[in-house]
């Protein structure tokens, strides 16, 4: 396995992704070189079809690049099999999706504890950590509610809590505010920024939302599967 000691959380080297749609080949990403330092809060922006979600999926190991290499914490993920990839995601990456983030048959607390349970953390620790993070994201007292009993904003807060509860190296968020009103979206951005600052958790967020773009520390603009511009906003 190819590993290297580095402070880079993510290292993408010349990654390309080509999809086959019938007889047509679609280039979703072309020769992307992209590095992320530990503790960064990065926003990937660009029009639909620019490759934001594809890039996020590649970094998260949910999809494999056609060419190129990706390193997470110095470990080349292309060389991992499905089981090793699952382990890597479990221990190093937290995910927040646009919708359908939570398991509907589990309560808010159980949704948060799920990842810790898979990591083998004992019940007492799980309980303590989940209640603490629920308090931190402002959902104290709602731990026994199931997703259908929570608002969209509350559900996304639970998703954020779940993504960061086991202190991953990286949190990947795909359009996290897409289904939220502006007030709720703003609160979620505040939450993610505060988590980034308090816990030094690295965030990579794919979005169309100008509020997130404005508040991100680094803005990476994608166009036609290529990085068009990188703006440092700190």
């Amino acid at each position: 396995m190819n590993t290297k000691q580095t402070d880079l959380v993510v290292e993408c080297q010349k990654i390309s992704k080509t999809y086959q749609q019938g007889i047509i080949e679609v280039n979703a990403l072309t020769d992307i070189d992209f590095d992320v330092q530990r503790g960064e809060f990065i926003c990937l922006s660009g029009p639909s079809g620019s490759g934001k979600s594809t890039l996020l999926n590649m970094i998260g190991g949910l999809d494999a690049p056609s060419t190129g290499e990706i390193f997470i914490d110095g470990e080349e993920i292309d060389e991992l099999d499905k089981s090793e990839l699952a382990d890597m995601r479990l221990h190093k990456i937290g995910f927040i999706f646009q919708a359908y983030n939570l398991i509907p048959v589990l309560t808010a607390q159980e949704n948060i504890e799920m990842v810790m349970q898979m990591q083998g953390i004992n019940k007492a620790d799980r309980n303590r950590k989940s209640l603490s993070i629920l308090k931190e994201v402002g959902l104290e007292g709602l731990e026994n509610r199931k997703p259908p009993e929570l608002s969209g904003g509350q559900q996304q807060r639970v998703a954020v809590a779940r993504a960061i509860v086991s202190r991953p190296s990286l949190v990947l968020a795909d359009e996290p505010t897409a289904n939220l009103d502006s007030v709720t979206a703003n609160k979620l951005i505040d939450l993610m920024l505060s988590m980034n600052e308090q816990h030094k958790t690295t965030f990579i967020i794919s979005t169309h939302d100008p509020m997130i773009m404005q508040r991100a520390k680094k803005l990476v603009k994608l166009h036609d599967g290529k990085i068009a511009e990188v703006i440092n906003q700190e």
Partner: peptide, 9 residues
């Protein structure tokens, strides 16, 4: 989602 969260196949 389960797979994304790290549950093995």
């Amino acid at each position: 989602l389960f797979q994304a969260l790290g549950l093995k196949p």
